[in-house]
Amino acid sequence: MAAAPVVRSPADAARGVGVRLDEVGIRFGAFDAVQGISLDIADGEFLCLLGPSGCGKSTLLSALAGFHVPAEGSVTVDGVPVEGPGPDRGMVFQGTEALFDWLTVAQNVTFGPRMRGVPKAERDRIADEYLKLVGLGHCHDRFPGQLSGGMRQRVQIARVLANRPRLILMDEPFGALDSQTREVLQRETDRIWRTSGCTVVFVTHDIGEAILLADRVAVMTAGPAASIKAVYTVELDRPRDPTSPEALDLAARLRADIREEVRKTLRDQGLDEVSDENGSLP
């Protein structure tokens, strides 16, 4: 009889994986979403994609997940071309609709292992381990509808981690949450990332969130045909103080980059002067 799959503890989890985007262009019909994107992401790095609305951040994340095939260039994970979704990559969405309301929290977390034929005793161990990691060890038998929005997002993160991906893709996972819950989950995400050892690519509109979490922040230009405008290394000790002079200085530089891109978009629409006069630009 074959031995049951072995799931190591999060502290002993596999290290993250390197990612490379080489001159990536993605189109939807005649619309160029992103163009000429080149970026190397190191093993175990936490990279944030930041930019104005509609610049293609989520589109780029979907290409890493294998949901979109680039029209140009290539996407590789651990040196292997991405040709579709795979268990080495886990996606955490902004909303929690991806959870199955008819399954308990533990059953949601172990859905992937169950589909792979992992025995129940091992699945129970996986649920216990990863729910404890995200602070929900007391919620095994609850259903998603019985949890707050922040708790449901923790379940979604635990479900991704239960598949032991080497790359986690997070698409504005806290965008719909209140500010207090969001702050808690930002700190938890930092802790979970350091514990799991995964590589993380995190999409956000929030400059403070990017500074709090990222090793590097890649700022995208406004779309269409968006590209990488600048990449900043966040040289701040963890845990980070967003009110420190260094953090505030970086925030100002990121804000200036995004403001410039927003103004380009407004100028193309003939709106820049009106917006400046009304003081509506950041």
Rank of each mutant, 00 (worst) to 15 (best):
V184K: 15
H205M: 10
M170A: 11
T189G: 04
E235W: 05
V219K: 03
T221D: 01
G175V: 01
D215F: 09
S179W: 00
S179A: 15
L236A: 13
P224Q: 01
T221Q: 04
T233H: 14
A176Q: 12
C198L: 07
A214Q: 03
K229A: 14
I168P: 02
I228K: 05
T199L: 06
D206F: 00
V200T: 10
L236T: 06
L177P: 10
R191T: 05
D190V: 07
I168Q: 02
M170S: 07
I228N: 08
A214G: 09
L177M: 13
I192P: 06
V201M: 03
W193A: 09
V217C: 09
T233C: 05
D178V: 08
S196K: 00
E209R: 06
E183P: 01
G197L: 02
Q186L: 11
V217G: 11
R187K: 14
V184A: 12
A225Y: 04
L236P: 06
R187N: 15
R187W: 06
R216H: 09
A218H: 11
A176R: 12
M220S: 08
E183V: 12
D190E: 15
L213C: 11
S179R: 14
R187F: 07
L212E: 13
A226T: 00
I192A: 00
A222Q: 07
S227H: 10
A222M: 04
H205S: 09
Q180C: 02
P224K: 03
R194W: 02
A225N: 00
A210K: 05
T195Y: 01
S227Q: 10
D215M: 09
I168S: 02
A176W: 06
E183M: 15
D178C: 05
V184E: 14
T189C: 11
Q186M: 13
V184Y: 11
M220W: 00
D178Y: 08
I228G: 06
E209S: 13
Y232H: 15
L177R: 03
L177V: 03
I207C: 05
V231Q: 02
Q186W: 05
A218P: 13
M170R: 00
V231Y: 00
G208R: 09
V217H: 04
V219N: 07
S179L: 11
D237Y: 01
